[in-house]
Design a protein around this nucleic acid. Structure first.
Lengths: 199, 199
DNA sequence: GATTGAATAGACAGGTCTGTCTAGTACGGC
DNA sequence: GCCGTACTAGACAGACCTGTCTATTCAATC
């Protein structure tokens, strides 16, 4: 057998926790799919909560590498920023897409759960990436644009999950393109955020 | 006692389900807070699942009236559209805000649960409202703008819940204002969606 | 006053959950 | 050959869950 028990547990947890929710899926289902004894799980991870954290940390890593790969395919700063939404589009197109794993896990956990911390790390990384890419693309206020792009990014995952919208990522991407263009426009007329025109 | 058993049950369910999640909170906690016997709950609603649906339907109604009231306060079509985000801002400002009740409940339920149906109704209403307000404000493509505004609306609730961003609604509102302005601009240069310029 | 309906408290069944524990097995290094 | 390590299978405790059922109280109506 090529894979370690830890790896098989993490794979089983990833599939089950993501598709059915961390609360609904019990330990027995995880160890059954992993083909592993219960004691092994508790020797390896210590608790279900720790397994959930490991699942999310693993997810964080795989999302990061997928997004980074998409970004690196591009050289134009503008296309590099929009590539984040292309990576999201790939995820949404998967047949078993069920929304953002961090948003879902967070909704199931209590407010002060340690799950929130792992989610915060992931979200901080995405926002930081948006800010870096926005700066490189010459946005007037990169931090503000990054926060706006996060709205679109999260909104797209919600639209895909709740409404089954298959083009949610494309919608977010085109909107992001418009915001980016407005934030990098040479004329100060429609820079968006900074304009206090009207209300 | 002025309120009926049904009303007290619904109030207790609303508080507990929203703050702690529909899965985590058991029947016993609900009836204890409502000060009602278990048999009364089952005579009134039939099952926990039906109580959850009633909780969401109730939420739908209260959200609708709150949003409608905010919109009706304005006469300018542009401000009427943005008022939806003002209503969201009021919700987020509440000390116990925990995100969109429908998104959260949906994350806890199985994919084909009847909960999804109640959520779909709510989301359809919001999107329809956005489309109506966008049309009234003279947007070039009201349906497209409505879908984009949904991204911002959902994104703001996620940002508020996951990042604790107190100004998430303001951020979404200012972004929505920019999108609306672009979609109603007299010059065809920056109408946003329809422009196929660049990628 | 008797009857009826709706509520009450709470025991109970049958199931699921996490986490612990015992007992046994396979294998690599020495 | 022997020992330590990592694993397996599975019983078990203790808690919690939903939903049903019994037995009782209270108030309004006939």
């Amino acid at each position: 057998m090529a894979t370690s028990a830890r790896e098989r547990l993490l794979n089983a947890a990833t599939e089950l926790f993501y598709e059915e929710g961390v609360h609904t899926v019990g330990i027995d289902r995880v160890i059954e799919r992993a083909g592993v004894a219960k004691a092994t799980l508790y020797n390896t991870f210590g608790s279900k909560d720790a397994l959930i954290r490991a699942y999310l940390a693993d997810r964080h890593e795989s999302r990061r590498s997928r997004i980074t790969a998409k970004v690196e395919q591009q050289t134009d700063p503008r296309l590099r920023l929009l590539a984040v939404f292309d990576a999201l589009g790939d995820s949404i197109a998967a047949p078993n897409y069920r929304g953002c794993a961090f948003v879902n896990a967070s909704a199931e956990a209590s407010r002060d759960s340690s799950i929130q911390q792992v989610s915060t790390e992931y979200r901080g990384w995405v926002r930081g990436l948006f800010a870096d890419l926005a700066r490189a693309a010459g946005a007037a206020d990169a931090e503000l644009l990054a926060r706006r792009l996060m709205l679109l990014y999260d909104g797209a995952s919600i639209a895909a999950r709740m409404d089954g919208d298959p083009d949610a990522a494309g919608l977010a991407r085109s909107t992001a393109a418009d915001l980016l263009d407005a934030a990098t426009a040479p004329t100060g007329a429609a820079t968006g955020a900074a304009t206090a025109k009207r209300v």
